[in-house]
Design a binder for these strands. Structure first.
Lengths: 151, 151
DNA sequence: ATTTCTGCAAATGCTTTGCATTGCA
DNA sequence: TGCAATGCAAAGCATTTGCAGAAAT
C-alpha cells in the first residue's frame, strides 16, 4: 500500500508540510470539517498558513482522490478523508455531519450495489452517489429550545 | 385542494405577479433551474424583475413548502416544484439534472421507506433525504470530446 | 390605511486568482 | 538550480440586506 507521500509524488505533486497537515486533520477526524474549520485547527501549529492554501490543498487532495467533498447543508462544502462510498446525516440545527454506519447502510439499502443498478436501469453513466439525510442529531432532537429556533 | 394563491394567503404572504411567475416557471419545467436561469427566463415577460426578487421568492416558496431546493453540482442551488421525495441525476459534463423516475427508484431501493427505516435504526430524527447520482447524461456519455474536458 | 413586497444598489461572505517569494526535489 | 507551492492581497461571484417607492389586502 502506498503512503500519501508516494501517491502525491507519483502524480508529480510536491509533498509540503501544509498538504500533509491538511490531510492529517481530515484523516484524524470524523467531523467533516469545512475549509474554514480546517484552517482554524491548523492555525495554532502553522501560524503562517494561509486560508487560500487550505482551499488549494483540499482541491488537490480531492482531485487526487485522497478526500471527498460533501455538498451538504449550509456554510460551504465539507471534507472527508474517508473516500469509501457511505452516506451522511446532517443535523439542521447544529450542522453536525455524521457518517451513516456501514451496517446500517446495508440494512437500509439491502446491500444493493446502487451504482451498478443505476447503470443497468438508466442511460446515464453513473460514477458516484451521494445520499444525505437531513434532520436533528440525538442532542438537538432532545433540546427543544434549540430545535425550535431552526431557520 | 388549495390553489397556490390560497396557500400563500393562508400564510399571510402576499400574492404578487413576481411570485406567481417564479412558481409557474418551476411548475412548467423539469430542468431544475438555478436562480439565474429562472431570472433569465422571466426577463422577456417581466423586464423590470430584479434578481434579488427571484432570490427572495424561491426562499419564500421553499419555506412554504411549494418547491424544494437541490444542493447538487456546481453553479449554485437548483429548484424543483416537485416536492415529492424523489432522487436526482446530475450530469457532471453539462450540468443537466434529471429526475430519477419513480418506478426506477422503487426497483433500485426496493420500495423501502427510507425515512422510517432511518428513524427506526438511528437516534436521529430524519425529516428528509436527498439522493444524488453523479455521472454523465446519455448525450454527454456518447460525446467523448466533451466528456474528456471534465474538470 | 396598513402592511408587505419590489427593485435598486451596496454589502457580505465564500472562494479564486495573480504574483513575488519561498521551498521542495 | 528549476519548477511548483505558499502567502498575501486583490478580485470574483453568488447571495443577502437596507431602504424608498410601489403594490397588495
Amino acid at each position: 500500500m502506498q503512503t500519501i507521500e508516494e501517491i502525491l509524488r507519483a502524480k508529480k505533486i510536491k509533498v509540503t508540510p501544509q498538504r500533509m497537515a491538511v490531510y492529517s486533520i481530515l484523516k484524524d477526524t470524523k467531523s467533516h470539517p469545512s475549509v474554514e474549520k480546517i484552517y482554524q485547527r491548523l492555525k495554532p501549529n502553522y501560524p503562517a498558513m494561509s486560508l487560500a492554501t487550505v482551499y488549494k490543498t483540499v482541491d488537490i487532495l480531492k482531485k487526487v482522490g485522497l478526500i471527498q467533498e460533501l455538498n451538504i447543508g449550509e456554510g460551504g462544502l465539507r471534507y472527508d478523508a474517508d473516500t469509501s462510498p457511505h452516506s451522511h446525516v446532517y443535523c439542521e440545527n447544529c450542522g453536525r455531519v455524521d457518517d451513516l454506519e456501514q451496517d446500517l447502510f446495508l440494512e437500509i439499502f439491502n446491500g444493493k450495489d446502487l451504482l451498478e443498478k443505476m447503470d443497468e436501469k438508466t442511460d446515464f453513466k453513473i460514477y458516484s452517489i451521494q445520499i444525505y439525510f437531513y434532520g436533528l442529531c440525538p442532542q438537538c432532537k432532545n433540546n427543544n429550545s434549540k430545535a425550535v429556533s431552526l431557520k
